[in-house]
Design a protein around this nucleic acid. Sequence first.
DNA 1: TCCTCAAGTCACCGAGCGTTGACTTATCGA
DNA 2: TCGATAAGTCAACGCTCGGTGACTTGAGGA
Lengths: 187, 187
Amino acid sequence: MASGRSRNAGATRGAILSAARDRFAADGYERTTLRMVAADVGVDPAMVIRYFGSKQGLFTAAADFSLDLPDLDGVAPADLGAEILPRFLAVWDHDSTFLALLRVAMTSPEAADKLRELFAAQVVPAFAKATPDHAPERAALLGSFLLGLATTRYVLATPGIATMPPDRLAAWAAPVIREILTGPAPA
Amino acid sequence: MASGRSRNAGATRGAILSAARDRFAADGYERTTLRMVAADVGVDPAMVIRYFGSKQGLFTAAADFSLDLPDLDGVAPADLGAEILPRFLAVWDHDSTFLALLRVAMTSPEAADKLRELFAAQVVPAFAKATPDHAPERAALLGSFLLGLATTRYVLATPGIATMPPDRLAAWAAPVIREILTGPAPA
DNA sequence: TCCTCAAGTCACCGAGCGTTGACTTATCGA
DNA sequence: TCGATAAGTCAACGCTCGGTGACTTGAGGA
């Protein structure tokens, strides 16, 4: 992505942001250096500071996104797994933003805060609405399950999970999601 | 753990190792500094190098453990959740070694290798043996689910999962484990 | 055309890191 | 009691990082 000589502020800023997302997603916060990001774009490291103020500012900008959860109102709880999983996997496959946030959240309290807030404000309510008894435990458990899938597939690349084709993984995981959302509740 | 003046090599080495585990578990690899670990023990940073050679050597020693998975041969698959979960949660609550390895594996390829190897060599076979059809997908999915629980509860501290009492979390998660191990397999 | 101002470069600072080797001190067998 | 040896300290190194400020260069309107 060496824009190099184009001298267009917006394009350069965007290229830095994109390179930063990839680096943060691949290496985490500490191992990512401004020098590397700048080199990926073909630009002086000072440009990163110029546009984003600091390394923390760069990450904040890189991890700023809207979740755009699909509306689950009309879907029967039993079909939720089949509905959710293909989208979920496709997003993680094509956009490194989530992976960057997840990886960084493992070691950075600020990023963990952001992820927690995302969970509490958007994920849990959206899922809880889709359960018959609206038990928040189900939504939390589903979030935990999906996060486990993302971690083993995209961060750790555990062979059993990472090597499965998306549709096969979705087929195996769908009944689990149904169980989480509609299974029996403890006393 | 300030042994300070005791001048006992074995005890000092052990204290350093223990402090290192806590630091790696809490902060990850990069944010953990030898100076901090040494200060926790009340010792000069040079001692850490003296006993472990390098920071990488310290981590390798800190993350070296045997898994000691319980024998699941006599347990009916339907009861596996109730059998596994309390042990699982207790271990994570009282020993920071696993948390250290998990957190570091998120950003360090070497630690991720170790975790993958642990999964492939010990976790998956032990779980696969406990399923009726011995499908490796079930074991992988169970590993993914447990890892998701550990991540949301101990690393990210997601409110819905982290605040649940252990027995309540076990009660909610047990049927999910049963579904993973004994539920229908896709075509 | 040329002058202006934003876009981009460059050299450099201060700090903290892992690591080293020479030094000091407590311990313990002879 | 006393010296040998391991345990522990100390000061410093080389390096890389995030961040700063002065400089250079190119694009575009008058």
